[in-house]
Simulated assay, not measured.
Amino acid sequence: MRSDNSEVHQSALDTLLTTAGLRGERTIRAGFAGAATPGNGRRTVFDCQNGRLLPSAVVARSEDGPASTDDAVNRAFNGLGTTHDFYHEVFNRDSIDDRGMRLDGYVHFSVQYNNAFWDGQQMVFGDGDGKVFTDFTGSLDVIAHELTHGVTENTAGLAYHDQPGALNESASDVFGSLVKQWSLKQSAEEADWLIGPDVFTPGIEADALRSMKAPGQAYDNALFGKDPQPDHMSRFVHLPNSERGDNGGVHINSGIPNKAFYLTAAGIGGFAWEAAGAIWYEALKASSAETQFQDFANTTYHKAEDLYGADSTEKAAVLAAWHEVGIQISGVPTGIARVRSRAAHRNGSTGSADGLAALSKQIGVLTTQVTGLAKDVAALKGKK
């Protein structure tokens, strides 16, 4: 349902159109040789003073300088630093490009600009229009989401269309949420799993931009309509690879891998950036430009085994999570995934040590039985 407030609706429409163009610019700028400037992850925040030309912005805070009197400058500076520290401390990654890329942020971009974005070289923040959106420097998970686009560009290089593009957006949501959880020291159970809960003004009835725990339920209001994200492959949204089609639904279908990550983290329990985050990070590094959902699911499953073992709780959690969103891991009998998923439901996916240990044992027994049957069949064939 469209908003009756034409001014607000037009503002939202203008932002969508502008952002679509900036996404294309981000791809071009990221492709320039030498685009990333080495600098030991040093931060500099510039003030655009409501202009749109970044070279005209003035330095507002540097790594060695004092805090600013402008809260937006300080929030941007701190958000860049927290995201940098997360990647360094959790994954031993040296800034966005893993080569010490400096982190430049630009605040007060344009007038009443309703977004924040990574353009391939730097982070840019709008102030919001005060009617729909607030200052985007106030949302750490949005800052980390955008910076993670830079990490993806420098690892998998996931193409920005269809399933690879949805994985690109999902990776940014996953690590954007993990940065927030890490900064707050929240467990998977304590986290809100919302992306951008701080960006809407109090007058907008919306929990957040997206919900990883419950895709499709982040908002339902007159301005934006109902959250269109699916949480299962049976509800995958087929859209054209165009601006109007959200490049094949990259922001919509990302709900499916988002839900898979949430389920994995909830199934393992504890801090999500540890086991679940490590699995997704290794899978991202092992992916390529045209990786599809099925490919990525398979990779997370194998990375879980590489990191934690063939009979691990972590591997079982990954298997059950993808099964829950309608993706069967290649080469794994459907029955095993189904049993793991049902067992997880019986235990509430709480990640309790006793429950998950029992589940892992059950999976191990089933796997042994399947292996034994395969050997028997091979033996019978050999006797013919």
Rank of each mutant, 00 (worst) to 15 (best):
225 G>A: 08
360 S>A: 15
301 Y>Q: 01
39 G>D: 09
361 K>H: 15
135 D>T: 01
290 E>M: 08
242 S>D: 06
177 S>V: 04
193 W>L: 00
281 Y>Q: 14
91 F>C: 07
340 R>D: 10
81 G>W: 08
188 A>I: 03
243 E>Q: 01
257 P>G: 04
30 A>C: 14
31 G>P: 13
132 V>E: 15
83 T>Q: 04
242 S>T: 12
18 T>M: 15
337 A>K: 02
321 A>G: 09
109 F>H: 12
270 G>Y: 11
107 V>R: 00
104 D>I: 12
305 E>K: 10
10 Q>F: 11
315 K>R: 12
356 L>I: 02
315 K>W: 05
172 S>Y: 05
247 N>H: 13
143 I>D: 01
125 F>P: 13
58 V>N: 10
258 N>A: 01
360 S>T: 13
329 I>K: 09
324 E>M: 01
27 T>P: 05
77 F>I: 12
210 R>C: 05
14 D>E: 14
280 W>Y: 14
380 L>I: 04
207 D>F: 05
189 E>P: 00
225 G>P: 13
127 D>V: 08
120 G>P: 07
332 V>E: 09
232 H>E: 09
98 D>I: 02
10 Q>I: 00
2 R>W: 05
49 Q>S: 08
362 Q>S: 02
222 A>C: 01
344 A>W: 04
304 A>I: 01
288 S>T: 13
240 P>G: 00
83 T>V: 05
187 S>V: 09
359 L>R: 12
275 A>T: 11
98 D>S: 09
38 P>M: 08
169 E>M: 11
137 T>F: 03
188 A>G: 04
282 E>R: 14
291 T>M: 04
278 A>E: 09
161 H>W: 06
315 K>M: 04
278 A>I: 05
220 D>Y: 06
37 T>G: 00
57 A>G: 02
80 L>G: 14
168 N>A: 05
144 A>D: 06
62 S>K: 15
4 D>F: 11
